[in-house]
Design a protein around this nucleic acid. Structure first.
Ligand code: MN
Ligand code: MN
Ligand code: ZN
Ligand code: ZN
Lengths: 140, 140
DNA sequence: TAACTACTTTATAATTATTCTAAAGTATGT
DNA sequence: ACATACTTTAGAATAATTATAAAGTAGTTA
């Protein structure tokens, strides 16, 4: 028994177009991920904790993992890594750059960085994308 | 009871200067890591397997982890991440760039990439380093 | 609407990478 | 050679993730 407003329509389409039944859990997760103005960078554990905190009926860990993987396979999420052993996900699926500031991740739009010189791909290979990480530290 | 040639001297100094006693295990690992012409990128598990394969007396997993961490803390190794949840280490400790080609990592010297435009650091922050990953795919 | 079936969720077990623990072994100074 | 602090090691513990399989639900279809 759940209501459905026009806002949710988008997510339902996103899910259906990925061959995923728009179950309650999936719609809720999609809403949480995509219904925001700024890019969202997260781990599955963070996603689970922040969503389940507010819910009486918790969504299971497995469903968070399943849904994030499905959305990634469908091309709605991008995976990346910091230097620990946890997967991060990015709601910005376009090729782009990042500031890394002590575990905090900030997007840099692709056109904010341009190259003067870039190496050629080794023979038999071609460049798929070029992504830059700018690591930050505090002044002084 | 172990012999010691002049080749090992370097590694012993490296270890001593890091406050580490040059035990047999640490010297062997250092030799394996640093006694090569090209940069070496590896996971602890890979290191352990390739070294222990050739040895009758195996070095323990804990010692591989301990030694790699110690060498990293001493500044002789750099840690980085691909998009799985495993730590990689790099014997090239200078800031530099990489090609990523299906799990294979290739160094790009810093001066092979130069920038035309780079964003400013957010206020209160400064740039520590800028590293580029060029992802490759096969032609056609 | 009832029934059917394939897909989904979930609790729980398993796996992988890594770290911790504490006992036995070793390097270094005296 | 002795003492002592540092090291190695097997094995237990932890964290992130994936697998399993039983119970539940969505999208048909009758
Ligand atoms: Mn881990
Ligand atoms: Mn893992
Ligand atoms: Zn991003
Ligand atoms: Zn490198």
């Amino acid at each position: 028994m759940h209501k459905m407003n026009s806002k949710n329509k988008t997510f339902i389409d996103k899910l259906r177009s990925s061959g995923l039944r728009p179950t309650n859990q999936r719609v809720e997760i999609s809403k949480f991920l995509f219904n925001r103005k700024k890019t969202f960078h997260f781990t599955v554990e963070e996603l689970k904790n922040s969503m389940n905190l507010k819910r009486s009926k918790k969504i299971s860990t497995a469903t968070f993992y399943n849904t994030v993987h499905a959305l990634k396979s469908a091309g709605y999420l991008k995976e990346f890594s910091l230097e620990n052993n946890t997967s991060y996900y990015d709601t910005n699926i376009k090729s782009h750059h990042h500031f890394f500031d002590n575990g905090k991740v900030i997007d840099i739009k692709s056109d904010k960085i341009t190259f003067q010189k870039l190496p050629d791909a080794p023979k038999g290979k071609k460049i798929k994308n070029v992504e830059v990480v700018i690591r930050l530290e505090n002044n002084n």
